[in-house]
Design a protein around this nucleic acid. Structure first.
Length: 985
DNA sequence: GAGAGCGCGGTTTTT
DNA sequence: CCGCGCTCTC
């Protein structure tokens, strides 16, 4: 297998370096590479290669990823390459889920009860909070939690060196730690960190459990922490074959104790490691890469490496300043629409991602999208499983599964209301603890008359407890114990019965008069999720571990337990591309959750100090890397933006993030013109067909401004800093005093022409933006939009995995083998460092040289070869009817025959005023039903619908002036869903 | 002792 | 801007 011919082994999609990594015979392979260089693809290919060429059994391979999403994606890819049969046998998942599997099978060996549950974040927090309070420790629970988690996550790293520090430890923390562990043990729970800690313990003491393992592969290695490193080594202890891929520049989990140092530990611990660096970036346009590098290179301590653009320059990334967060949201919507429109169907909503530093920033964006009727899905942030109604049901299930889980029991005692208050529950808990029995059995015995509780429980309540809680749960428990894979529907039935017997619907109606429907729908969705779970994980040994000879496994056929574990471990976003394909959704995600993914169009809003370096962040380098990660998700269009005033008050000005401030001049100040070269360049990068100009033209409605000119370029006006809220038109309309911002001299340095801000135009457009956006029929409505795009863009477009389209153009570096591009500063390892003293900037120099070479080669050539006509698009640029008096009501043309359901929203041409009751009458008449045109196929649709006003309950949000609405309505909670829906067969 | 009402601080990112 | 903890009433 040493001489492998790429042609015959499916390695064609790999470049030379990748190929070398895939086929390396070294026991340990470290693949270090920047974003978009095909790391994951390479790792996946190596798995395939190990199985097909190396003769390894899939069951003997462990692939660990960092996030659930990454695991799922990896799974998908391997399935495509190997087929489901083989893929299923590979032990693949997040560290946590793999650890859990081992503990479920072998945990008995280290004294673990096989029915252990997983304490999620909320559980841990609650437990710690209680302990702190009860013992009157003078510490902050959140701090304690962090500390405990850090301590567990360290693994073997810390122990040797720092004894001095250990003495300094706050004894209160130690006490809390102890109490916490005791409590977990009593409730038979493991927290997330414990899964890893105990697995390490297991594998240390019982290596035979992994004696079969031939190869271990780790994705996103830079994010592993100490304990995960230990675990990796232990997984690999039989054969010591490890392959890792990673990028130190993308290390964004330091707060979770990820240690870049692990890279050097690996090189030290496995001196024969074959290091491979991948240097070509296949993802992004050159200008995106350039500016991303500008950002990351501010970090002087970083380990430099080469990143060669493969694609052409592309449109200049944008750094846009907006008046407020609300304006920012609206601008984003406008840009999305502009791009979708002017790319003539080549870009769809699903090609767009909005990446946020924190989930809480999503509000404005969501409301803008909602108003415009753009469907979206939110990844990360609020979790479906965190919703109150869901938590209650889950808590019941946990009690069914684990009667000793006192916390779950306690939460469930008075929900639905049974007239048992907090004080009573607290007292019962105390009593149980004193009596060294679980809360459940205390109640049980009390109600059976076996042991009278000292806590006073009134007869009426005892009655209720007995019939409504104890009896229901215990019968369900009996049923669940008889449940197994051969009776696949029982889990759904179980939840159904639980909910019915609790009269949960009525409870919701009474408790949540306002939105009980939504909540009940959520409960229904939970039932559906359970059904999906049964289908996908229920029967197949999705989680099986290979039998190792002579090592007995515990059977884990407890469906309920697995469901609950799945909820705890997989509570992040699922995407089910199959179903989503029908409706094209914009993605909103945290930057963290976006790692490893890519989109043609990426927005990074709120790039201001306090958000991106987050105000509570301790490591600003990590924050910078975070921004870098966000930026490098983009393939063709990258937009950063920053509101000039914070959302709270008008007076709090906001400062541009220091990470971009020095480069303001390198960004465009507004969205690019989507002229022919830009469109064609994008088409090339994405490997999609560029639409003809006619195709684009035909769909552009009149009144549509092809430029990003609806918002002032510089909304900042010192004379009128307070005109923000009420929109005293004057100040936005004033001609821009150019570049008088605090940040830098943007100098307007390049060919980007600055369109002067026309006062009248500005006002009208600005003012009319709400209704224009939301009510032009066929324009904003997803239905029409889909019709339009479907007609044009029926071609295959795959965003996920690129097969390195530009093979012909991408020049591989001849000296690819060299490592010097990567590590320039060798930390205190003294094993043979590669060409050690490369000047620190060499890599960058190389990069620059390559980049300019590349540019020289491509810029003229690329366009002239494929598409000889350069700038016909002038016509397009001038196709700007809208610069005229903007208020003329457009003779709204339906772009296509929208069939029978053409929906004309009623809109008045008068500028929107703050909502008055009479006015809203008119608005009520407007059909608030953009959502009806959308298929309700996936749960994400549900997500989206929750964003929309429900007829009768709310008036159409799109019609009204936004601020009023925002204040009137309780902000909706986006359902952020996550559907553990594995790609079913 | 249960529940409704008001005031205050506070929450980054994920398994 | 949202859950909490505190107070007051039943």
């Amino acid at each position: 297998m040493s001489t492998t011919n790429p042609e015959t082994t499916g390695l064609k999609s790999l470049n030379k370096a990748q190929c070398r990594a895939v086929t390396s015979n070294a026991p340990t392979v470290a693949i270090l590479a920047g974003p978009g260089s095909g790391k994951t693809h390479t790792l996946m290919s190596r798995v395939v290669w190990l199985i097909q060429q190396g003769g390894y059994q899939p069951t003997d391979i462990i692939v660990a990823t960092f996030t659930v999403k990454a695991a799922r994606e990896m799974k998908e890819r391997i399935r495509k390459a190997l087929g489901q049969e083989l893929e299923k046998k590979i032990v693949l998942g997040t560290f946590h889920s793999i650890a859990r599997r081992y503990l479920a099978k072998y945990g008995g060996r280290i004294g673990l009860d096989s029915k252990f549950g997983i304490a999620d974040d909320g559980d841990s927090r609650a437990i710690i909070q209680r302990i702190c309070k009860r013992l009157d420790l003078q510490i902050e629970p959140s701090h304690a939690k962090l500390w405990i988690s850090k301590r567990k996550a360290k693994g073997s790293t810390s122990t040797p060196a720092q004894n001095g520090k250990q003495l300094k430890e706050n004894p209160a923390l130690v006490t809390c730690f102890q109490g916490y562990q005791d409590h977990l043990a009593r409730s038979n729970l493991l927290d997330y960190d414990d899964l890893l800690v105990r697995s390490v313990e297991l594998l240390q003491n019982h290596p035979s459990c992994v004696s079969n393992v031939q190869a271990v592969l780790i994705d996103e290695y830079q994010d592993t922490n100490g304990i995960q490193y230990d675990l990796m080594k232990l997984f690999a202890q039989a054969r010591q074959r490890i392959t890792i891929v990673g990028d130190p520049d993308q290390s964004i989990y330091g707060w979770r104790s990820a240690e870049i140092r692990n890279l050097y530990r690996l090189l030290r611990d496995y001196p024969e490691t074959d290091e491979v660096s991948l240097e070509e970036n296949y993802r992004s346009s050159q200008s995106i890469l350039d500016i991303s590098l500008d950002v990351i290179q501010q970090d002087k301590k970083r380990y430099k490496k080469v990143l060669l653009p493969v694609h052409t320059k592309g449109a200049k990334p944008v750094l846009r300043k907006l008046k407020s967060s609300a304006a920012e949201g609206e601008w984003i919507v406008a840009e999305i629409r502009r791009a979708v429109m002017l790319f003539g169907g080549m870009l769809k909503h699903e090609d767009v991602a909005i990446l946020l530093r924190s989930a809480s920033l999503s509000r404005h964006v969501e409301s803008a999208l909602g108003k415009a009727g753009v469907a979206y899905r939110m990844i990360g942030g609020h979790k479906f499983y965190d919703r109150k109604e869901i938590k209650i049901v889950l808590d019941y299930l946990r009690v069914v599964y684990q009667p000793d889980n006192n916390d779950a029991v306690a939460r469930v005692i008075n929900a639905p209301r049974r007239g048992i208050g907090e004080a009573t529950i607290k007292s019962l808990l105390e009593e149980a603890e004193q009596a060294k029995m679980s809360l459940w059995s205390l109640l049980w015995r009390h109600c059976r008359g076996q042991r009278k509780a000292t806590t006073n429980i009134r007869a009426k309540m005892e009655q209720k407890l007995n019939t409504e809680l104890l009896r229901i749960v215990s019968t369900l428990r009996q049923r669940s114990e008889g449940m197994n894979e051969s009776s696949p529907l029982t889990l759904v039935g179980l939840i159904d019965d639980l909910v019915r017997q609790l009269n949960f619907k009525r409870y919701l109606e009474e408790e949540y008069v306002e939105d009980h429907e939504q909540r009940w729908a959520n409960v229904q969705e939970l039932v559906n999720l359970a059904g999906d779970f049964m289908r996908d994980f229920g029967k197949a040994d999705e989680e099986a571990l290979p039998e190792v000879e002579g090592v007995a496994q515990a059977k884990e056929d407890d469906l309920l337990g697995r469901l609950l574990a799945n909820v705890a471990l997989a509570s992040d976003a699922q995407k089910d591309d199959k179903e989503q394909g029908k409706s094209s959704l914009v993605t909103i995600s945290t930057i963290h959750a976006a790692k490893g993914l890519e989109w043609p169009v990426v927005f990074v809003p709120s790039v201001f100090t306090g958000s991106i370096p987050h105000s509570r962040a301790e490591d600003s380098d990590e924050e910078r890397r975070l921004l870098y990660v966000a930026m490098t998700r983009a393939q063709v269009l990258l937009y950063l933006s920053c509101p000039l005033y914070g959302s709270q008050g008008l007076s709090n000005k906001v400062e541009l993030s220091p990470f971009v401030a020095p480069f303001v001049g390198k960004f465009a100040q507004k969205g690019p013109s989507f002229d022919r070269p830009v469109v064609e360049g994008a088409a090339k990068i994405l490997g999609r067909g560029a639409p003809t100009e006619k195709a684009i033209f035909d769909k552009i409605p009149p009144m549509f401004s092809p430029e990003d000119d609806r918002f002032p370029i510089d909304p900042f006006d010192p004379k009128n800093p307070d005109g923000l809220e009420d929109d005293a038109d004057g100040h936005c309309a004033r001609a821009p005093k150019r570049q008088r911002t605090v940040y830098a001299n943007t100098g307007g340095g390049d060919g980007e022409e600055e369109r002067p801000w026309k006062p009248d135009y500005a006002t009208t457009m600005e003012k009319s933006s709400e209704f224009t956006m939301s009510s032009l029929p066929g324009f904003v409505s997803a239905g029409a939009h889909r019709a339009a795009t479907a007609a044009a863009g029926a071609q295959e477009t795959t965003t996920a995995t690129k097969q390195h389209p530009g093979t012909g153009t991408s020049r591989r570096r001849p000296d690819q083998r060299s490592l010097l591009g990567f590590v320039t500063k060798e930390p205190k390892t003294q094993h043979a460092p590669p060409p050690s003293k490369a000047p620190a900037d060499l890599s960058f120099t190389r990069y620059q040289a390559a980049a300019s070479r590349h540019a020289a080669k491509h810029a003229p050539a690329a366009t002239s070869i494929d598409l000889p006509r350069p700038a016909i698009d002038l016509a397009l640029t001038q196709h700007k009817l809208s610069t005229g008096p903007a208020l003329a009501r457009p003779n709204a043309p339906k772009p296509t025959d929208d069939g029978p359901r053409k929906r004309y929203a009623v809109f008045s041409s008068s500028p929107p005023r703050p909502a008055s009751p009479d006015e809203s009458d008119e608005k009520k008449a407007a059909p608030a039903e953009p959502e009806q045109s959308r298929p309700a196929a996936s749960f994400h649709t549900t997500t989206f619908m929750s964003a929309l006003p429900r007829a009768g309950v709310r008036r159409p949000v799109g019609m009204g002036p936004p601020p009023a609405m925002d204040r009137l309505r309780k902000p909706f909670k986006p359902l952020t869903i996550n559907r553990p829906k594995g790609p079913s067969g």
